[in-house]
Amino acid sequence: MLEITNLHARVEEKEILKGLNLSIRPGEVHAIMGPNGAGKSTLSNVIAGREGYEVTDGTIAFEGRDLLALDPEIRACEGIFLGFQYPVEIPGVSNMTLLKAAINARRKHAGETEIPPNDFLAWVRDRAKLVKIDPKMLSRGVNEGFSGGEKKRNEILQMLVLQPRLMILDETDSGLDIDALKIVSDGINALRGPERATVLVTHYQRLLDYVQPDFVHVLARGRIVRSGGPELAKELEEKGYGWLEAA
């Protein structure tokens, strides 16, 4: 599904990713862990196509296509979703407006007609229940006045509404209390399936207790320095990252 080969990327002249390789197949859940500044967020943003990240070498193929040639909105329409570490507040654009515009952009891209208003409302309302977001909050501006936990739950709501095929969650677990973590994890698990893949970018092992990964990778100094199964996460929790960074 996603094939990253020898990826080099920089932000403002500073090289962050230095030859990263990663292969993800449908149905898999990958956890990418690593110390601060290792390049975890850069990797997420490069996949999503965020401006300001310059790929200097290497390739990313998504279902056989050259992902790097696509604008971020096309990547999203093709089924890539990035859950942000710091979701932005957009007063004046309601959550509902964003969701509807996003759904219809995707449908247009797929050559489909716009979603009928009643179907849209029902679809959103059901998913809002899953992440325990009061539908009244959705009439407000995007994330406007939301708490940290509500913002993360809202990211998951958007994901549930848009049904992406590749979900990248950038530190979605950071700053969550245990109840919110549970809701977020339930949301991620609800979308697990043989056609979809998930990348969990996280600093802590905690999230992985709720969302079982198939693979765990350690990202350090701009490349993946170790890969393993779920047990690797436990090992990292005990030993920290120092022993890998030194290696």
Partner: peptide
Amino acid sequence: IALAYLRSRGIDK
């Protein structure tokens, strides 16, 4: 940043 956020959800520029 808001513009990038909306685009990341599939909405054209």
